[in-house]
């Protein structure tokens, strides 16, 4: 792999990573809210609902993540260069913070108080930020990995 394509591959992987993990996590928060109301959620139902959301939730959420990562990852790379180390942590934090800012903007602009139901609670918001952080972490791994050195 050439260095020219490495950031793009890292970006796509980070968006996919954060989007899919975020979708899976938000489903579990929604189902947990129903369980708290007394609903019995079988494993099959949980799996089917998670799968449904991977198809139904990801187009919108993936768009938000893609836009967020476009800003957050280059910013994290600048900070990494400036500090000279800590790429994994910096990119993870940048993605988490980027998602928080994105959610704030969306909730400010959208007519409803909170667009993504799972982020109505602090726990849900932190969990979603954690999935975004994993995406940022993945970006750093791929973007900073020395492919030529590894293959040589």
């Amino acid at each position: 792999m050439t260095n020219r394509w490495q950031p793009l591959v890292a970006y796509v992987a980070a968006v996919l990573d954060a989007t899919l993990l975020g979708s899976i996590v938000q489903t579990q928060f929604n189902l947990a809210a129903l369980s708290a109301l007394g609903a019995e959620i079988s494993f099959t139902t949980r799996l089917a609902t998670t799968g449904h959301d991977l198809l139904g939730f990801t187009p919108l959420y993936g768009s938000l993540i893609a836009i967020m990562m476009l800003g957050a990852m280059p910013a994290a790379s600048v900070v990494t260069r400036w500090l000279g180390s800590g790429a994994w942590l910096i990119h993870a934090l940048a993605a988490a913070l980027g998602l928080w800012v994105t959610l704030w903007i969306v909730d400010t602009l959208a007519p409803m108080p909170t667009l993504i139901a799972a982020t109505r609670s602090l726990e849900g918001t932190l969990a979603m930020m954690a999935t975004a952080a994993l995406g940022g972490w993945g970006y750093a791994i791929l973007a900073y990995f020395d492919w030529d050195g590894a293959s040589g």
């Binding site: 979708s23 929604n30 139904g56 939730f57 409803m112 993504i116 139901a117």
Partner: peptide, 10 residues
């Protein structure tokens, strides 16, 4: 379903 496309409930 929710406005995000996510299921509110199964």
């Amino acid at each position: 379903v929710d406005y995000t496309g996510a299921r509110v409930t199964p």
